[in-house]
Simulated scan of single mutants.
Amino acid sequence: MSKTKGFLAGTIFGGLVAAAGYGYYKMLTIEQQADLKAKFDDTVADVRDKVVDYSYAATDAVASVREKADDFVSDKSYAFDTKVADLKASAEDKSTELREKADDLIASAQEKAADLRSQANDLKNQVKSDETDAPEEDIVLSPTDDALDSETFEELAEASAESEILNPNVGLSQTGVKGLSDLSEK
C-alpha cells in the first residue's frame, strides 16, 4: 500500500507543480512568455543536438569495438583454422606412415608364412619319398635274437597255431580253452 500512496502523492505533487508553473507562465507578459519560449526551444534544440552527438559517438564507439572484436575473432579464427589444418595434416601423415608400416608387416608375415608352407611341403614330400623308397622288411625271429630268450622261443614253437572257431556268445573262460596269455604264464 505504501507504493500506491507514494504514487498518488507523486502524481498530486507533480500536478500541483505543473499548475503552479502554468499559473506563473500566464502571469508573465507576452514578451516574457516569448523569451521563455525561445529559451525553452533553444534548450530543447541544444539537448536534441547533444543527444544526437552522443548517439553518433556511441554508434561510432560500438562500431569501433565491433570492428576490433571482428578483427580479434578473425585473427583467432585464422590461427585456430591454421592449427586445425596443421593437426589434420599431421594426423594424415601419421596415418599414412602407420598404414605403410602395417603393409610392410603384413607383407613380411605373408612371406614368412609362404616360406614355412614351402618348408612344410618339402618335409612332407621328403617323408613320402623316404616311405616309398624304403623296402619293406619282414620280421624274422630266431632263437639267437637277444630280444627273445630260448625258453620263450620254445614255448612259442610248442603253442599250436590252430584256428578254432569260437562261439561269439561264449567267452574263453566259459569254454575251458586256454588263451595266449594263459600259455605265456607258464
Results as ranks from 00 to 15, higher is better:
Asp93Trp: 06
Ala19His: 05
Asp115Gly: 04
Glu155Pro: 00
Val52His: 11
Ser184Met: 11
Leu116Met: 08
Thr132Ile: 13
Lys112Val: 05
Ala91Met: 06
Val62Thr: 10
Asp81Glu: 11
Ala102Cys: 03
Asp149Lys: 00
Ser108Leu: 10
Lys3Val: 06
Ala109Leu: 08
Lys3Ala: 06
Ala34His: 11
Lys178Gln: 06
Val47Ala: 08
Ser64Gln: 05
Glu137Lys: 14
Gln119Arg: 14
Tyr78Pro: 00
Phe72Leu: 07
Lys178Val: 07
Ala45Thr: 15
Lys50Leu: 13
Ala69Arg: 10
Phe153Gly: 00
Ser90Ile: 05
Ser118His: 10
Lys76Arg: 09
Thr4Val: 11
Ser129Glu: 11
Arg66Pro: 00
Ser2Ala: 14
Ile106His: 02
Val65Asp: 04
Leu180Phe: 08
Thr43Val: 13
Arg117Val: 12
Asp104Leu: 07
Thr144Met: 02
Asp70Glu: 10
Ser74Tyr: 02
Val73Gln: 04
Ser77Leu: 10
Gln126Met: 12
Thr175Lys: 01
Leu123Cys: 03
Asp138Ile: 11
Ala19Ser: 08
Lys68Thr: 05
Ala102His: 08
Pro168Thr: 05
Met1Glu: 10
Val140Asp: 01
Ser77Lys: 09
Ala9Asp: 01
Thr59Gln: 13
Gln174Trp: 08
Ser160Thr: 14
Leu141Thr: 01
Ala63Cys: 00
Glu137Pro: 00
Ala18Lys: 13
Ala114Asn: 07
Tyr25His: 11
Thr59Pro: 01
Val52Leu: 15
Pro168Gly: 02
Asp53Gln: 15
Asp93Glu: 11
Arg99Asn: 13
Arg66Gly: 00
Ser64Val: 06
Leu183Ala: 00
Phe72Cys: 01
Glu31Lys: 15
Lys112His: 03
Pro143Lys: 11
Lys88Trp: 02
Ala107Ile: 09
Gly15Arg: 13
Ala18Asp: 07
Ile12Asp: 02
Ala45Asn: 15
Gly21Tyr: 09
Thr82Trp: 02
Asp115Arg: 12
Asp35Pro: 11
Ala161Tyr: 05
Phe80Arg: 07
Lys76Ile: 04
Ala79His: 01
Arg48Ser: 14
Gln33Val: 06
Ala113Tyr: 04
Lys101Pro: 01
Ala89His: 04
Glu151Tyr: 04
Ala91Ser: 04
Leu105Ile: 09
Gly10Pro: 03
Gly171Met: 07
Gln174Glu: 09
Val140Gly: 01
Ser55Asn: 15
Ala147Gly: 04
Asp49Phe: 13
Asn167Ala: 07
Ser129Ile: 14
Thr43Ala: 11
Ser2Asp: 14
